[in-house]
Simulated scan of single mutants.
Amino acid sequence: MQSFSQAVARARRDFTATRYAGLADDLAGLIPVARAATDPAGQALAAQVYHLAALTLIKLSAPPYAWVAAHQGEQAAAASGDLRALAEARRDMVSLFHRAADYAKARDLTARAADLLRPRLADAPPAAWGAYGALMSTGAVAAARMEDRHSALAMLEEAAEASRKAPKLVLSAGHVVTYRIGVSIVLGDAGMAIEHARAISPEDIPTVERRASYYTGSAEAYTLWGKTDRAVRALLVAEKIAPSEVRRPGPRRVIEDLLHRDPHSHLSGLRALAMRASVAL
C-alpha cells in the first residue's frame, strides 16, 4: 500500500508540472493496481488514480477515455467514502459535461455535490477542502456559460474560502484567481479578467499547470480587450512555462483569433508561435 500511495503522489506532482505524456504511461501501470483495491483506503487511492487519469486524458484531448476513467473514479470514490475522492470524482464529471457543452448539467451537478459535501467539511482534512474548492471553481465556469452570474460568483467565493484551508499545491488563492479570470471572460468582462490577473503575482501560483493557465487566460482577456501585443507576450510566457498547455484547444483558438486580427502577422513572435502550436497560418 505504501508504494502505491507514493506512486500516486508522484503522479500528482507530474500532473501539476504538466508532464502529461509520461504521466499517461505511468497511470497505465497504476490502473491495474487500482482495480485490485478492495479496502476503503485502497479504494480512495484508486479513486485518485482514476481522477488523475481523467484529468490527463482531458489534457490530451481524449474525452471518450476520460469519461471511462471518470466513471471508474466515481465507483471507487463511493466505495471508499473518502471526502476528497468524492469531490474529485464529482469535479471530473462536471468538467466532462462542461466540455461536452452540457453546461446546465455541469452547473447543477456542482450544486448538488455542494449540498452533499458541504455539511461534511467542518472537520475535513486540508486535501478534502482543496478538492471541494477545485470542484466549485470548475462548476463556476459552467454556471458562467449559462449566464448564471449569481451561481458562478457564489461558487468562486466558496472556492476562495476552501483555498484558505487547503494545501497550497492542491488549491491556493492563485489557483482560484485563474478561474476568476476564466469566469470573467465567459461573462464578457475582459477588463475584470485583467483586474483579477493584476491582483496576484503569477509567482504566487504554486503549480506549473495553473500558472500556465493564468497566462493563457490573461492572453484571451487581452485579445478580447484589443491589447494584442500583450496577449502574444502572455502566450509566449505560457509556452515557456508549459509548452503542452499552449497546444490545447483554448489557447490555439486565441492564437487563431490573433492571426485573424493581424493577418500580416506584425505581432512579434506570433507566426512562429502559431507554427509551434500547429495553428494554420
Score class of each variant (00 low, 15 high):
residue 148 D to T: 13
residue 197 A to W: 05
residue 174 G to A: 10
residue 126 P to K: 03
residue 148 D to K: 12
residue 207 T to S: 07
residue 278 S to H: 11
residue 30 L to I: 08
residue 65 Y to K: 15
residue 39 D to E: 11
residue 267 L to F: 07
residue 158 E to K: 13
residue 63 P to I: 04
residue 3 S to P: 01
residue 270 L to A: 04
residue 151 S to I: 09
residue 102 D to Y: 15
residue 77 A to K: 03
residue 182 G to C: 02
residue 265 S to A: 15
residue 239 E to Y: 14
residue 245 E to I: 14
residue 255 I to S: 00
residue 245 E to N: 03
residue 254 V to M: 13
residue 83 L to V: 08
residue 211 R to G: 02
residue 191 G to Y: 05
residue 123 D to V: 11
residue 108 D to F: 13
residue 33 V to D: 05
residue 195 E to S: 13
residue 25 D to E: 15
residue 266 H to L: 10
residue 96 L to I: 11
residue 16 T to M: 12
residue 232 V to M: 04
residue 219 A to W: 11
residue 207 T to D: 06
residue 212 A to P: 06
residue 25 D to P: 05
residue 47 A to Y: 01
residue 22 G to Y: 01
residue 196 H to V: 02
residue 88 E to V: 04
residue 156 L to M: 01
residue 56 T to K: 05
residue 19 R to E: 09
residue 99 R to H: 14
residue 133 G to K: 00
residue 219 A to H: 14
residue 112 R to Y: 10
residue 197 A to H: 12
residue 108 D to T: 07
residue 88 E to M: 06
residue 263 P to D: 00
residue 218 S to W: 07
residue 117 L to H: 00
residue 231 A to P: 13
residue 109 L to V: 07
residue 180 R to F: 02
residue 154 A to E: 05
residue 268 S to R: 09
residue 252 R to N: 14
residue 108 D to V: 08
residue 4 F to C: 07
residue 154 A to S: 10
residue 110 T to H: 08
residue 43 Q to H: 02
residue 77 A to D: 03
residue 154 A to P: 04
residue 9 A to R: 10
residue 31 I to E: 15
residue 75 Q to H: 11
residue 142 A to V: 05
residue 70 A to H: 10
residue 227 K to H: 13
residue 232 V to H: 05
residue 259 L to C: 08
residue 122 A to K: 09
residue 224 L to V: 03
residue 107 R to K: 14
residue 231 A to W: 13
residue 184 S to Q: 09
residue 276 R to P: 03
residue 278 S to K: 09
residue 280 A to C: 02
residue 33 V to W: 09
residue 269 G to H: 06
residue 190 A to P: 02
residue 247 R to Q: 15
residue 110 T to N: 07
residue 77 A to L: 10
residue 258 L to R: 14
residue 34 A to K: 01
residue 131 A to D: 02
residue 11 A to M: 06
residue 62 A to F: 07
residue 63 P to T: 06
residue 167 P to D: 07
residue 174 G to T: 07
residue 20 Y to L: 07
residue 59 K to D: 12
residue 201 S to Q: 07
residue 73 G to F: 01
residue 46 A to R: 01
residue 62 A to L: 11
residue 121 L to P: 07
residue 14 D to V: 00
residue 263 P to I: 04
residue 133 G to N: 05
residue 248 R to Q: 09
residue 10 R to H: 06
residue 149 R to V: 12
residue 47 A to S: 12
residue 74 E to N: 13
residue 207 T to Y: 00
residue 191 G to P: 03
residue 217 G to L: 01
residue 40 P to R: 11
residue 257 D to P: 00
residue 212 A to L: 10
residue 107 R to I: 09
residue 78 A to V: 06
residue 100 A to Q: 05
residue 147 E to Y: 12
residue 281 L to E: 06
